[in-house]
Design a protein around this nucleic acid. Structure first.
Length: 735
DNA sequence: GAGTTTGAAACT
DNA sequence: CAGTTTCAAACTC
């Protein structure tokens, strides 16, 4: 059941975004980052002191919005000057009257400036700078001054699983906040602005050889160990200000979501403000609908979205810099404490509480609304991040610092099975702690955590933990806590090779199939025999013995890396490169040396990478060439196996639905459904949407609070009547 | 699960 | 650079 018009009204009630998937690992970059990190030890002090300069504009109110959703500008009732800049296009300055749905406005601007056929990533940034009338900064008191949403260009959708990048105009998915999901969180203790950039879709490998591995061997189900590398580029910058906020990274189905929670506890409670933003510039499209800020809910964007929304609420004592390495899929955040006051806040221990998990994307049709939270309730905004494309060499962010209204609480939402190394850069004190999934570290005073750099001890984190006085890096790798087996795929395109260096490293589906844990016994996981090490990752939940590939043996590890690079400068570079025809012609850079396998077993790096042997190979008795009958036979067998697996999967799925009917009717002795049995989840949700819509309307009309409450209650009564009416019509007999 | 095979990495 | 050894993953039983 749904009340009349509820669908329409609810369309403005929630955000629905879709996300992109992660990209490939580049161990070279990780290694490079680690080496750089080591080298940075000597210059860490200077980094600390220079960071604040980037976090300028303290007190200024700048709102950055990069968005496609129908979001509204954070709370303000005054006209707002907005600068819209997107890749490859000149910056536009527009003035938005109060109440305008800035998301639509931005979107229309972007659409006009962006070729529809482009496949490259487009990041549109909207910076709300000031009130053009009063020349005052906008709405710093709203407790939410920054929103960042990254817009993906069309043509980036992938077909497998949830791997979809958002397309302009596509429906946006809504994630209820209450459902559990694997999370990986990082707290940015002080006010920060995060922008995300998404890479264009990388072509999947086009190869000839189908996967022959038994489906049961798909590593995803068995390895908690490998956590997929960070697929996105994240630029985090701090802003000056007194209050902390939360930034958390949530991985849902391989897509990372950044959530920043502003704790408005230090802000005086405010009444929700209605924003009316209309295009003031003639060239801008007219927007007839306006979204209203009505509740203390946060923007909830789905995990599977390419849009990103970030809100910040405060200024910072900590500078957060992004560290990006050329060619790397990894994103690092360098946390540098910059305030003198922070020095007095050492030794504090985080309070551990249970975090409310953020639900994965659903297929709900509810539209999204960016909601400012002027109340003491935290503002929670998620930033789904698309896979990284090519990471540029600049190691520091160029994002404008943003000042934000203050909050006083830090939080860190733990990813699954996260172990943290907490380092006090001032005293050098190091602590280790492990937290269950979903754990949130709270720093109620706002500064408890600010002197500690948090280093999730997960794979892909390369020597982030540094000694005291050294900038600390936090890898923003997506959670691998819930490995997912790649769905059965047709022969083409096969996954990009994972033969990064090592041997027989599984040709991982770059999206997010985790690599298997290693079983090294003699190498201490410090040689390229070890897949983890070869891929530039820490061992995590591996079965190795005497492992030195961890934070406890940083020095040894660094030496081992150096030794490998001394032997072979390309040791950590991908082994599979592009041929003359680019992606269509991948080849093993070094070539294999197989003698007995005929290059038709996974011993062969070429075969494992699902590419044909090339002139680079020195193999004997090679059967891994285009016209090889043996290879063709294997291909056919593999295809047939895949078909069978797919059919079996489909059958199982069907059975599951049959075995678990949605919800048994609740009936009385006579077999009639009892009235409350009609209040299903759908009904409840629809009712809530109706109430929400009603609340929005009252906000829009600026009705008094008393009347608003009355109207909402009446709406609730209306919903109940409809439920009763529907129950009566069905004369519900249990089914 | 134990043992064997294999080829890349490491070493000489 | 070639030959040998070491190593851990792939494979077989």
């Amino acid at each position: 059941m749904s009340s009349p018009g509820s669908q329409t009204r609810s369309s403005t009630a929630k955000a629905r975004l879709e996300a992109a998937k992660s990209g490939k690992t580049d161990p070279v970059a990780v290694i490079q980052a680690e080496l750089d990190n080591l080298m940075a030890k000597s210059s860490s002090e200077s980094s600390s002191t220079t960071s604040p300069s980037k976090a300028t504009k303290s007190g200024a109110s700048t709102t950055v919005i990069t968005a496609t959703s129908e979001s509204t500008v954070p709370s303000t009732t005054t006209p707002t000057e907005v600068r819209v800049s997107s890749a490859g296009n000149p910056t536009q300055v527009i003035t938005l009257p109060p109440g305008s749905p800035v998301g639509k406005t931005i979107q229309s601007i972007v659409k006009r400036s962006m070729p529809s056929t482009t496949t490259s990533q487009v990041v549109t940034k909207v910076i709300i700078t000031r009130n053009p009338v009063t020349k005052q900064p906008v709405s710093t008191t709203a407790g939410l001054t920054t929103a960042t949403v990254t817009m993906m260009s069309p043509g980036t959708a992938k077909t497998s699983g949830a791997r979809q990048l958002i397309q302009p105009g596509s429906p946006i998915k809504f994630i209820p906040i209450t459902q559990p999901v694997t999370q990986q969180g990082v707290v940015i203790p002080k006010g920060v602005v995060i922008t995300t950039t998404s890479p264009a879709k990388q072509n999947a490998a086009k190869v000839a050889i189908p996967a022959l591995k038994s489906p049961t061997k798909v590593s995803g189900s068995t390895t908690p160990k490998k956590i997929a590398p960070a697929p996105q580029t994240i630029i985090v910058k701090s802003s000056a200000g007194p209050t902390p906020q939360q930034v958390s990274l949530t991985s849902v189905s391989g897509v990372k979501t950044v959530a920043m929670v502003a704790n408005p506890s230090t802000n005086p409670p405010q009444q929700p403000k209605t924003i009316q933003i209309k295009p003031a510039v003639q060239a801008q499209p007219k927007v007839s609908t306006s979204s209203i800020v009505t509740t203390s809910t946060a923007v909830v964007t789905p995990a599977a979205t390419a849009a990103a929304t970030v809100t910040t609420a405060s200024a910072a004592a900590t500078t957060v810099q992004s560290v990006q390495v050329p060619g790397s899929k990894f994103s690092y955040v360098r946390l540098v404490t910059v305030t003198a006051s922070s020095a007095s806040n050492t030794q504090a221990k985080p309070v551990v509480t249970t975090a409310k998990p953020i639900a994965p994307a659903t297929t709900s049709s509810v539209h999204s609304v960016v909601r400012t939270i002027p109340t003491p309730n935290p503002v929670k905004v998620n930033v789904p991040i698309a896979p990284a494309q090519k990471i540029q060499a600049n190691r520091s962010s160029t994002v404008q610092p943003v000042s934000v209204a203050g909050t006083s609480q830090n939080r860190m939402i733990m990813p699954a099975n996260t172990q943290l190394k907490i380092i006090n850069p001032l005293t050098g004190e190091t602590k280790f702690a492990s937290f269950p999934p979903g754990t949130t570290l709270l720093a109620p005073s706002g500064n408890i955590l600010q002197n500690f750099a948090m280093v999730p001890m997960v794979p892909q984190v390369m020597s982030q933990a540094k000694p005291a006085s050294t900038p600390n890096y936090v890898s923003l790798a997506p959670s691998g806590g819930v490995p997912q087996a790649a769905p059965p795929r047709p022969r083409s395109p096969p996954p990009p090779s994972r033969v990064v260096n090592g041997r027989r490293s599984a040709p991982v589906d770059s999206e997010h199939r985790p690599r298997k844990p290693c079983n090294c016994t003699k190498s201490q996981c410090l040689k390229l025999y070890c897949d983890c090490f070869a891929n530039g990752e820490f061992c995590n939940s591996c079965n190795c013995n005497n492992c030195y590939n961890n934070l406890d043996h940083e020095d040894d590890r660094a030496r081992a890396i150096k030794a490998c690079l001394d032997r072979n400068p390309n040791a950590f570079k991908p082994k599979i490169g592009k041929g003359r025809n680019g992606e269509l012609d991948r080849r093993h850079n070094k070539g294999c040396n197989c003698k007995r396998s005929g290059c038709l077993k996974n011993y062969c790096e070429c075969y494992e990478a699902k590419i044909l042997c090339s002139n680079n190979c020195k193999c004997v008795g090679c059967k891994n060439f285009e016209e090889s009958p043996e290879r063709k036979t294997l291909m056919h067998l593999a295809d047939a196996a895949e078909v069978r697996v797919q059919q079996q999967t489909d059958a199982n799925t069907k059975l599951q639905f049959q075995d678990f009917p949605s919800r048994p009717a609740i009936v009385n002795d006579s077999g009639k459904r009892l009235p409350f049995s009609f209040i299903t989840n759908d009904v409840a949700e629809a009712t809530c949407q109706c109430l929400l819509a009603q609340a929005e309307q009252t906000e829009q009309k600026r009705t008094s609070q008393a009347k608003a409450e009355k109207l909402i209650l009446e709406e609730f009564g209306q919903c109940l009547r409809q439920v009763i009416h529907s129950a009566g019509k069905t004369k519900g007999v249990a089914s």
